Amino acid sequence: MMMGDGTMEESARWALPMLFAGQAQKEMQHNEALTLIDALLHGRAESADMTAPPGAPGIGRCWIVAAGATGEWAGQGGAVALWTDGGWRFIAPRAGLRMDVADRDHALFHDGGEWRAVPVRGDGVYIDEKRVVGPRMGTIADPTGGVIIDGEVRSAVSAILVALRGHGLIAR
């Protein structure tokens, strides 16, 4: 938002309040900016699935408001809701914002249009929400023995195992 003299009242990206020479009560603007930065810097949300505010939120805790929100969160779907000693503050997400989400045990990031789950999580790697690499399993032994020895097949299987171990996909 621009002031009459062409200077910005808020930062361009996160709408943090700006300070001006001769401004009264600068500490209020400064504290508001710090409150918003505190919520976003290495952000953590308790949940991204709630449509109503929790009954007893702790100061400094955040939630990503789910679509169809009600009560004090009505109309805030997709926003980051921050509980402060002054009540709820809502932060509109921007492309690149990442929030760890406690009840999902993985992070979400905002792509500029919607929240998306990160592809690399504690239980595997996901593409289009489908797990394509899961937790590492136990060791697979190199091929040995057999009635008929086929050197080419054994060599190919060994090369596959070496590659999988080298990439950390299976145990050594």
Rank of each mutant, 00 (worst) to 15 (best):
A12D: 12
G68T: 03
G122T: 14
L161G: 06
L40Y: 02
A12I: 12
A15L: 05
D105Q: 14
L16A: 01
L40M: 09
D103R: 02
E10S: 07
P54E: 00
L36M: 15
G68V: 04
P53T: 01
I140V: 12
R61T: 11
E27C: 00
D100R: 12
M18K: 14
K130W: 15
I160W: 13
G168A: 07
C62D: 03
G43V: 11
G96D: 01
M50S: 12
A81I: 07
G75R: 03
P17I: 00
F90C: 09
W73A: 06
H106R: 13
I127A: 05
A171D: 04
M50T: 02
W73F: 00
A171R: 05
V133S: 03
I59N: 13
L19I: 08
G6A: 01
P143K: 00
T51P: 07
M8S: 10
H106N: 11
N31G: 02
G55Q: 08
G22H: 06
G113W: 09
L36R: 11
R13Q: 10
A12R: 12
M2H: 07
T139Y: 15
W73D: 04
P57D: 14
V153H: 02
D105F: 05
R131I: 04
L169K: 08
A69E: 05
P17N: 00
R121A: 06
S158K: 13
W63R: 05
D5L: 01
M3Q: 10
L108P: 04
D5T: 01
E152S: 00
S158N: 07
A79G: 00
W115N: 02
G96K: 00
E152M: 02
A107Y: 08
G55E: 14
W83V: 00
L169M: 12
Q25T: 05
G86P: 01
G113D: 13
F20E: 02
A15I: 01
A33R: 15
H30S: 11
R61W: 10
D111S: 14
R116P: 03
W88R: 04
A39T: 01
A21T: 13
A48C: 08
M2D: 09
I127C: 06
A67P: 04
A92C: 05
A56I: 01
P54Y: 00
L161F: 05
R136L: 10
S47T: 03
G122P: 08
R44Y: 12
Q25N: 12
G22W: 11
